[in-house]
Amino acid sequence: MTAPHVVLTDVTRVHGAGETAVTALDGVSLEIHPGELVAVMGPSGSGKSTLLNVAGGLDRPTGGTVTIGGEDLVTLAPRDLAKLRRRRMGFVFQDYNLIPSLTAAENVALPLELDGTRARLARRQARHTLGLMDLMDLSDRYPDQMSGGQQQRVAIARALVGSRRFVLADEPTGALDSHTGEEVLRVLRERCDDGVAGLLVTHEARHAAWADRVVFLRDGRVVDSTGGAERAEDLLAADGAR
């Protein structure tokens, strides 16, 4: 097996101090390999978003280490952290966050342009990514000309354009109906099968079921995790016999 792309070791995140301190994460360790999609589930307030933000360098842990592709986020200077975030990972949120005045292709190209890639090259890479994801038809549409599911798929393209190999998604299906949500998960799954590492927060079991592994949080701690898969043949035999 390849080396893990994302490694969290004994991560703790305490918000505030003194009497009002809230321990949002309490000694969480987690590895994500390239090609692996990991889902995080748990009751509201259990620390799911905090985990995602810490893994993506949007928030700094109070203890423990976070490495992405071998680089330690915790000791990185803010400028370098911002650069690493722009180049190595992408975020997907519940409300898509596409820029309304830009087309799909322009939205996807934007992170590259912001990072200094020339516009023409950025567009070309954006179209390449949209093509990979079967979204070419949407290239010239503006966000208000797309459905929620289409916008979210474009947002995934934006998160993974260029050489970014780590996608972090916080309730990406939260605003979608169940069927559309599943289409979005299918796209995310395909990107991971192509070697991307994915971290997904969801409260829907049927969406978490697209992940290789589900990690449960309660009160900031990992209380359980699903392991290896059953063999499909066994499953069929058993279900058929029921």
């Binding site: 079921a209 699903t226 898969a229 499909a232």
Partner: peptide, 11 residues
Amino acid sequence: TSTLRHLRDLT
């Protein structure tokens, strides 16, 4: 955990 594993295999 067990049911989610089953759900993943079904998926």
